[in-house]
């Protein structure tokens, strides 16, 4: 199929030419998804850790629910958030619809359950090793959460990356709440969808290649940093 060959040419050409428009889209993608993942991590990691160490009735139900939420359909999230942020919706006065902030919000909702669920697993495993010692230090179950999060930091990188992967690849939610507005809310995935609908398959594939390379680069950089630090800490 000629589209493959020409798209490879095209993506290399796009990258080399340093096309300003393309770079703006790439940077917006990174800005939206990284912001979303950082926010989701700040909420999701302590939440997952708390769920790992706390013991209360209904905990198992909550864990099942959280695991199920990892598969939230982006379109549904986008739609729900659209109904909230629409001028006819309860949060309309915030005027967030069709802004990058709305896209960040949508991705936070998508990514937070993933980070929380994976953090729960990481922290639960670590807690099996640590719990007696931490209790001996006089820490309560919830009081041990910061220690467990910090000492689980290298494993938690994986949760962070899983969240990032989901966010950067997602199109359904950002398309609805962002509106794919040129120069405002157009990101990699919505551009790919648009170019596909224009029949520009080679260009769409070229952009897809760049997106994949981008995802690999972020993963590699994070793993490299994490791996080096982990080796240094013998964790």
């Amino acid at each position: 199929m000629q589209d493959f060959a020409s798209s490879l040419d095209r993506s290399i050409g796009l990258i080399i030419s340093g096309d300003a428009e393309l770079w703006a889209i790439v940077l917006l993608s990174l800005r939206v998804s990284l912001s979303a993942v950082v926010i989701a991590a700040v909420i999701g990691m302590p939440l997952g850790a708390a769920l790992a160490v706390a013991r209360f009735p209904g905990r198992q139900v909550l864990i099942v629910l959280l695991n199920a939420l990892m598969g939230l359909p982006p379109v549904v999230v986008g739609l729900l958030l659209y109904l909230m942020l629409s001028n006819a919706g309860p949060l309309g006065m915030l005027q967030l619809l069709y802004t990058p902030t709305a896209m960040i919000l949508a991705q936070v909702v998508l990514v937070m359950p993933i980070i929380a669920a994976l953090s729960r697993q990481v922290v639960e495993t670590l807690d099996r090793e640590y719990s007696e010692q931490l209790r001996s230090f006089g820490l309560s179950r919830l009081g041990s959460v910061p220690t467990l999060l910090w000492d689980g930091r290298f494993s938690l990188l994986t949760a962070f990356l899983a969240g990032f992967g989901r966010a950067i690849a997602e199109v359904g939610a950002v398309m609805i709440v962002g509106g794919n507005i040129n120069h405002v809310t157009r990101v990699m995935t919505t551009t790919i969808a648009l170019e596909t609908s224009k029949g520009n398959l080679a260009l769409a594939l070229a952009l897809g290649t760049i997106l994949i390379v981008l995802a690999i680069a972020v993963n590699a950089a994070t793993s490299l940093m994490g791996g080096t630090a982990r080796r240094l800490a013998h964790a």
């Binding site: 640590y130 007696e132 930091r153 800490a233 013998h234």
Partner: peptide
């Protein structure tokens, strides 16, 4: 917390040697 315990298998935090001591002094 006026007590302490050492276990058969040491549970060391994933930090530096000094970091383990700093940790206890801090809490």
């Amino acid at each position: 917390i006026r007590q302490a315990m050492v276990f058969q298998r040491p549970v060391l935090l994933r930090r530096s040697v000094a970091g383990n001591l700093h940790y206890v002094l801090r809490i």
